[in-house]
Deep mutational scan, measured.
Amino acid sequence: MDTYKLILNGKTLKGETTTEAVDAATAEKVFKHAANEHGVHGHWTYDPETKTFTVTE
């Protein structure tokens, strides 16, 4: 398992979190669910070198 990071750049919610996942696709599902639960919808990017997802509203 690897550690993946999410950076939230929402209009009303900003922050960072991490998750352990077997691959980037699994981490993305976890992060998108969490972002949706917090009402953050926007443009997603992924940097494979740093294993970091970013969502920007």
Rank of each mutant, 00 (worst) to 15 (best):
residue 35 A to T: 06
residue 6 L to N: 02
residue 20 E to P: 06
residue 35 A to W: 07
residue 50 T to F: 06
residue 25 A to T: 09
residue 25 A to W: 09
residue 43 H to A: 12
residue 26 T to G: 10
residue 52 T to M: 03
residue 15 G to S: 13
residue 33 H to R: 15
residue 22 V to F: 11
residue 47 D to E: 10
residue 25 A to L: 09
residue 13 L to N: 08
residue 21 A to K: 01
residue 16 E to W: 14
residue 1 M to Y: 13
residue 12 T to Y: 14
residue 49 E to V: 11
residue 57 E to W: 06
residue 55 V to G: 00
residue 47 D to P: 00
residue 30 V to F: 14
residue 51 K to W: 04
residue 37 E to F: 11
residue 35 A to H: 03
residue 42 G to R: 01
residue 44 W to E: 00
residue 8 L to T: 05
residue 22 V to M: 12
residue 36 N to S: 12
residue 10 G to F: 13
residue 54 T to Y: 09
residue 20 E to V: 14
residue 6 L to H: 01
residue 29 K to R: 13
residue 16 E to I: 14
residue 51 K to G: 03
residue 24 A to C: 14
residue 33 H to S: 12
residue 36 N to K: 14
residue 33 H to M: 14
residue 4 Y to E: 03
residue 3 T to F: 07
residue 8 L to D: 01
residue 50 T to L: 07
residue 33 H to Q: 15
residue 52 T to H: 03
residue 6 L to D: 03
residue 9 N to D: 10
residue 15 G to A: 14
residue 8 L to K: 00
residue 1 M to P: 08
residue 10 G to H: 05
residue 30 V to G: 04
residue 7 I to T: 04
residue 27 A to R: 00
residue 14 K to D: 05
residue 55 V to Q: 01
residue 46 Y to S: 00
residue 35 A to L: 14
residue 36 N to W: 13
residue 49 E to N: 11
residue 3 T to K: 09
residue 7 I to G: 01
residue 49 E to C: 10
residue 39 G to A: 05
residue 28 E to W: 14
residue 27 A to K: 00
residue 32 K to N: 05
residue 48 P to I: 08
residue 4 Y to M: 02
residue 52 T to C: 06
residue 17 T to D: 06
residue 35 A to C: 07
residue 45 T to W: 06
residue 4 Y to V: 02
residue 52 T to D: 00
residue 22 V to G: 09
residue 19 T to G: 03
residue 37 E to Q: 13
residue 49 E to F: 11
residue 26 T to Y: 07
residue 1 M to F: 12
residue 1 M to N: 08
residue 11 K to R: 12
residue 52 T to L: 04
residue 56 T to A: 05
residue 14 K to V: 10
residue 31 F to L: 06
residue 25 A to V: 10
residue 46 Y to K: 00
residue 44 W to T: 01
residue 52 T to A: 04
residue 54 T to E: 07
residue 16 E to L: 11
residue 18 T to S: 11
residue 4 Y to W: 04
residue 32 K to F: 07
residue 53 F to I: 01
residue 30 V to Q: 09
residue 34 A to G: 04
residue 30 V to H: 12
residue 40 V to H: 03
residue 14 K to Q: 11
residue 52 T to F: 03
residue 57 E to N: 04
residue 21 A to L: 02
residue 28 E to K: 09
residue 14 K to M: 09
residue 52 T to Q: 04
residue 56 T to Q: 07
residue 42 G to Y: 04
residue 54 T to W: 07
residue 14 K to L: 08
residue 14 K to E: 05
residue 38 H to W: 15
residue 31 F to W: 01
residue 27 A to W: 01
residue 2 D to E: 13
residue 21 A to E: 04
residue 40 V to K: 03
residue 9 N to V: 13
residue 19 T to L: 13
residue 10 G to V: 09
residue 55 V to Y: 02
residue 6 L to F: 08
residue 11 K to E: 10
residue 4 Y to Q: 03
residue 4 Y to N: 03
residue 29 K to E: 11
residue 24 A to Y: 12
residue 50 T to I: 06
